[in-house]
Amino acid sequence: MKRQKVLLLWSLVYVIYGFIFCYLPLAGWLMAFENYKPKDGFFHSQFIGLGKFKQLFVDDGFLRVIRNTLAMGVINLVVTFVAAIVFAILLNELKSQGGKKVVQTISYLPHFLSWIIVTGILHDALSGTGIVNDLLLRFHLLKEPLNFFAHPKYFWGIVAFANVWKETGWNAIIYLAAIVAIDTNLYEAAAIDGAGRWARIRYITLPGIKPTIIILLLMNAGNVLNAGFEVQYLLGNGLVQSVSQTIDIYVLKWGISQGDYSLGTAAGVFKSVVSIVIILIANGMAKRAGEERLF
């Protein structure tokens, strides 16, 4: 018992800290059910039940924002996943060890750059005088320069590309580690049996990294609604806001800029609750399929 004292004392500090910075904001969810006015404060604002939620769901703007968040979340999840797995497998098939090392080192680079830098670079590349327009004009795929950021139909694709560019190398790290862990005897045996490269990838590598894929898919599924703030905020503009705005941007716009704290909180609460439900469903599905689970 004596050896608990110091640990208990230290834990206490962490519990107090965690309570203030992580759990106290949860109490703020109460605001979503109030007509919160700063002058009345937290405890004396008028309680209005689900009024703010009703306001949200009759607002076409909010419904559009949900659609955008979900669509971009799912597109990004699928595209970045496939890109990372394909890249990891192909990189592993590279014969030259030195080449592998160089390509992998370069592939990490974008992960360490901020979204500010990445979106800035993207703006340059896609601008009227940028490389993309120049190439398209040179190959006669376009007649005149196209302003990609002025057309809503390109926005989701640009966001997906930005995510792939930034994170493919980074996300591949974990798959490469999983591939390296596969028993090399399997490959040798398959090669003796006459299995070609595709067959080896299809029947050994992919099944070998399946548990990793599922765990990561589970972990990221819960983040589908979180996948939309920085890029959309930095790349969006007035011309594409019908497809660029996400729940987080909506919260920022209404909650902070317009000062409707209750409405902003209600939108945030909606997002959190849906995220938790998605995590639980994903976890349950994995459990039923007899796969590894998060908890």
Binding site: Y14, V15, Y23, G28, M31, Y261, G268
Partner: peptide
């Protein structure tokens, strides 16, 4: 204590309550 912190990975108050805090 572990659980106390792991929960914070999945649930948080969100932008507005945090901002006001």
């Amino acid at each position: 204590l572990s659980l106390f912190w792991v929960i914070t990975m999945y649930v948080n108050g969100g932008l507005i309550p945090t901002f006001l805090l």
